[in-house]
Design a protein around this nucleic acid. Sequence first.
DNA 1: TTACGCTGCA
DNA 2: TGCAGCGTAA
Lengths: 260, 260
Amino acid sequence: MFEARLVASATLKKVLEAIKDLLTDASFDCSDVGIQLQAMDNSHVSLVSLILRSDGFDKYRCDRNLTMGMNLASLTKIIKCANNDDTVTIKAQDDADTVTFMFESKKHDKISDYEMKLMNLDQEHLGIPETAFSCKIKMPSVEFARICRDLSQFGDSVMISCTKEGVKFSAAGDIGSANIKLTQTTNFDKEEESVIIDMQEPVTLTFACQYLNSFTKATPLSVQVQLSMSANVPLVVEYQIPDLGHIRYYLAPKIEDDEN
Amino acid sequence: MFEARLVASATLKKVLEAIKDLLTDASFDCSDVGIQLQAMDNSHVSLVSLILRSDGFDKYRCDRNLTMGMNLASLTKIIKCANNDDTVTIKAQDDADTVTFMFESKKHDKISDYEMKLMNLDQEHLGIPETAFSCKIKMPSVEFARICRDLSQFGDSVMISCTKEGVKFSAAGDIGSANIKLTQTTNFDKEEESVIIDMQEPVTLTFACQYLNSFTKATPLSVQVQLSMSANVPLVVEYQIPDLGHIRYYLAPKIEDDEN
DNA sequence: TTACGCTGCA
DNA sequence: TGCAGCGTAA
């Protein structure tokens, strides 16, 4: 059987918020490693990669690898029935076609369980190569979300340019053009507010705002976000989930000649 | 003449919120006892019973019994013109076809009055027998509201099952099934948070979510709600209105054979 | 037009 | 953390 317990359902709620805009359905792969999800978004443009490590759970048991296909709208309805401080336990029998979510209030006077049918989803196994990147930018996740939101007012695309001077986000359109420049901060007191730029080689790439804005739905999961870029390979937007894992989004750059 | 005064109109606003989803028009019976209302809801499925006792008013005078038929949409518009801490006075002449609402600010620097036409409504006098119930459940009213809201995600009906183990609320539908179990709490410190179950005989009954959700509009009136159930008789959902009276909702159970 | 859910504020 | 007001969706 499979059983995984988290003492606070809040994290699970945030994880769901972070993927449900991009995915209608999702296959969660459960194994000794933890719970993993890799999937192209609905429009097959971006890619979501999620890992919740087994050691991050308060209890974790997985006798046999299993894949749980879930409709995320249904899952969202169920998770919303939990209070943020409820303990949540996910259970499934081996080869079962249902999964059970159990929520327990801190005082143990309210116990609810929700059973959901699993789906058989086409498994698209995606090889994601681990590569070295020309530029890595760490910054406050709310800052990144704000930049994406602000720039999407100006056009459909954001150009991200990373040089030794810092990182510049740009957009242009009918109403005008916008540039937002960030420089590395030397604020070591508040690590969560710092901007850290690791540039091996300057890179300038352009991305569709729409997807970046979907990625920023993960903002509540982590105070910092890391952007990794190299020429001609997908951008990686990574949010660490404290003590539990991470969620990564991959988005291929727009081809520059297409930019009209 | 008839005259009734409350030092805070907030209660009156909440009472109105608690009935206007169910009733388009309402006949308020005024007598020495106080202001009473008994009516089937618009769809003639559930029943609302309201009493605002005369001794709960800050001033109450009723020379002659009278019935005031009001359109609740109009009444709502008028009551919304009062600030929550305004003193409200309801006045009607004997045999008058209008009622007057007077709102006074605490500092007496603003006095408004609103006159509304009364309606002649068909009086359906409903005998509600006082019966003993197999199970009475007292619980926080917000908890009950939350349970009704959560379970209505899963289906049109909620099954309430009261046994010596506690009370269980269940629903099932396309996306899955849900069970919420509450056990009696022994938390005597915070009476308003406690769950108290008085079970003479176990009962399991099924009700339409839609009406339960309408009943929970009374939640702001009281921190606790009481559910009373016996086999084959209507559920009673009761909210005490502190120092003033109560509102009770009656809803017949669904016939079990109908459950497909 | 009404009811519900959400976000922002206290 | 809880409420109230706003915006949306039926």
